[in-house]
Design a protein around this nucleic acid. Structure first.
Lengths: 218, 218
DNA sequence: GAGGTGTCTGTTGCATGGTAGAGATGAGTA
DNA sequence: TACTCATCTCTACCATGCAACAGACACCTC
């Protein structure tokens, strides 16, 4: 399986190489990828159903810019899916992902001790990913992945970690979540995971626009 | 907005006009819709990301046939999303969808009294749809819709209602769910909704293959 | 000066032809 | 009879060309 055009464009959008609202010309993309316009068109159509670009007929294709309301909706979905994942994982008991999660926590501790924000940013993404994968439901992974792509999540995390105290707090929450999952307390795991997602959302929204506290819109 | 080729093919798949596993020839579809192969290809690519068809490169496109394991995964997701929807709806309080739900229940009562399975089948779909829409999260609606399309849910419901007693039981569960939502008990609404989805899954799987009880696979 | 209209350019939308790969089918051999 | 290999056909895949539309700009009219 080689990298498709869609994968390439998707990566550019998620990484932020292509800015929000940027126009995506078919001919330009075709030239950049060394193919004709046809496969580019197909890729854009695919990215549209993934919610990453918006195709305005006869006008052009643009990178979607989620509104503040949409970001809140996405985080609400994140809370739902990750909460469910934690619950399923706790129910399943010992699976390979649990071991990987313990390693993740150990590395996060080290990153915290060294105050290495960049390393921890990656570890945060991995932590959440591992929980979702550990739930043992491929559909859950699929929906979660599209969600995270729409949020351009990895880009956001490093921002929210800039809040004073959030780094240590986040790491603490992660450790507690894993502890509860290991006790196989399904309901508790779900509750804790939801709280954690809410906390990280609060931190993020505070950084994005400090004036508006969580829940004040819609 | 006119009906696109993708919409047309999607409708055919969901309704069952196109059977599971059926090969979708580009030229045939193009001829049927009076267009060339290019827009058909784009439509198929879109349906692939929706999980409705499987494109085997250089071979052809086929209507996906969810395995038994996948159906269980899909129902697990259905439980998660509808549970969350019920919770959100209970939290929101009085919204237009609540009124529609009361009408729905009244009609369902009538259908039950008249033993009108066909009418009730539609009402079941509407009930669940209203709960999800009432949650006030457009992303939730999107993910839920793709999920239901993958399950070809409406086709399945009538099957499960053939079980003796399931019709009345299902209607009863619906009424209880709406009752609890109206008391604005978020946690209780979520719990009840999950149980209902599980019950309907049990009924369905029993009809599909009576030998294997729920949870015996994977 | 302001509003409307016509043209012009850049873009997407679709059709079609050539190419390459996958699968099937047949013949040949052990 | 069974198995292997070569050929052949059918399919998706991509490139390219043409048509149609949206938006911008200038000009004309009031």
């Amino acid at each position: 399986m080689q990298l498709t055009v869609a994968d390439s464009i998707r990566a550019q959008i998620i990484s932020g190489d292509l800015e929000s609202g940027a126009a995506l010309s078919e001919v330009t993309l075709a030239a950049e990828h060394g193919v004709s316009r046809t496969p580019v068109r197909e890729a854009l159509k695919q990215l549209q159903t993934e919610g990453l670009v918006e195709i305005r007929p006869r006008v052009g294709t643009f990178v979607t810019t989620p509104s503040r309301a949409e970001i809140i909706e996405l985080f609400q979905m994140k809370e739902v899916l990750e909460g469910a994942a934690a619950r399923f994982l706790a129910q399943r008991g010992e699976v390979p992902e649990l071991k990987a999660l313990r390693v993740n926590i150990a590395r996060s501790d080290a990153a915290l001790a060294a105050n290495d924000v960049a390393a921890y940013t990656d570890l945060v993404g991995e932590f959440h990913q591992l929980i979702v994968e550990g739930a043992g439901n491929s559909k859950l992974v699929q929906h979660y992945t599209t969600l995270m792509n729409q949020l351009a999540y990895t880009r956001l995390v490093s921002t929210s970690l800039s809040l004073p105290g959030r780094f240590a707090e986040s790491e603490n929450e992660h450790r507690h979540i894993l502890d509860v999952i290991e006790t196989r307390d399904a309901a508790g795991s779900e509750r804790l995971m939801r709280h954690h997602v809410q906390a990280s959302q609060d931190a993020l929204l505070e950084v994005l626009s400090p004036a508006a506290p969580r829940g004040s819109e819609r």
